[in-house]
Design a protein around this nucleic acid. Sequence first.
DNA 1: CTTTATATTGACCGATTGGTCGGGCGCCGC
DNA 2: GCGGCGCCCGACCAATCGGTCAATATAAAG
Lengths: 214, 214
Amino acid sequence: MGELPLTLEGEGRQRILAAAEKLFSDKAFDAVSMNAIALQAGISKANIYHYFPNKDALYLAVLRAASRNLRKLLNDAVDAHGTVVDVLRHFARCHLQALLDRPELVRLVWREILEKGAPRAQEFAEQGFADVFSALVAVLESGQVRGELRADFNPALVATLMLGANVFFFQSRDILRHYPAVGFADDPAGYDAGIVEILLRGLIPESSADTVRA
Amino acid sequence: MGELPLTLEGEGRQRILAAAEKLFSDKAFDAVSMNAIALQAGISKANIYHYFPNKDALYLAVLRAASRNLRKLLNDAVDAHGTVVDVLRHFARCHLQALLDRPELVRLVWREILEKGAPRAQEFAEQGFADVFSALVAVLESGQVRGELRADFNPALVATLMLGANVFFFQSRDILRHYPAVGFADDPAGYDAGIVEILLRGLIPESSADTVRA
DNA sequence: CTTTATATTGACCGATTGGTCGGGCGCCGC
DNA sequence: GCGGCGCCCGACCAATCGGTCAATATAAAG
């Protein structure tokens, strides 16, 4: 369909994967037909079956590639240097930016996680979770042993809170944009800066911080 | 099919809606066939079309009912009395408990929000969001004017953080259960208690809370 | 009993689905 | 020239899809 005949190695396969990734990220598995994928890729439907035995295998390949890419993308956001507080600030910002940079990948993998009806590759899609989560927990723990952070909170709980804040922002920003009270829907960096600041300092004025335990 | 002939008003309609709700909450729109709904409801497929003009209308009716129920359920979790801090604690716990009590409703509505490909009723599904979000913002603002909470944070941002913490927990608890560091995957009350405590007091030891602004 | 309106159904429709098949096209070794 | 071989396609398949329709069962109203 008027495409440039790029003669890269495995070009046909990549074309199919790219087309399928785009469609599967927008609509659910059953809502994407092999015909639509072929059309998007600019090839015939029968040709897809030259590279993939069936639709499930194609979907699995797409999910595998997306999960791998997303995993790498998110891992790159974790490593940083400086004080634990700086690392947390850096992580929050980079992690959310990574999500927003490749929304197709996130939606693809996250939909698989949420789907209870047909768990095609749940435990596989959860891989990206493990690295980031455990890395973040490690950062928080090191902050605790160094005395930079309180020792009386659960690191895994805070890690969940931070990841949840970013994922929820990613999922809900279209809704949040409608609310006048929300000024950060299009300012992910500002959002994360505010989140981390609140997490670090707390909501309670310091003078009365000890009266809350009543 | 051997069912008791309950002669309630609109019983047939309710049966269809219940069956469709169950199936639509597990699988996506295109993955649920009218045949499957009829089978689940114990009636014939043609009979569904006596109550609903087409599949979209049925799905919309299911989504409308689910959204309405979820909205009421979540609103009931908001109202409370006592200090602002107490209200926040109560809200977090009740909100998450409401999500976990009716997971089908949450999944149904949330899937509609996440789907970018076929926005059948997005703005409609977002209704439940508005009430809870604005109510929570109002609580936080009142806490600020009363001096119970800091005045230098964005209430909408904290509301997003709290809602996100609960929604993310709801979505990810099956994953979180796999991690040994997470002891709260099956303890939503403990999770929210920890979340609120961290939000209120912050991660930084109070003695060094003023050195972080560097 | 008859009329009338609502429920309910099996049989059927055209369209689309995932998947198959036989063959054509182009390129490389011989 | 020519025989393979990877790539690609139009045509086709049975199954299922959403949806229609004529016919029946049911039950209240006259």
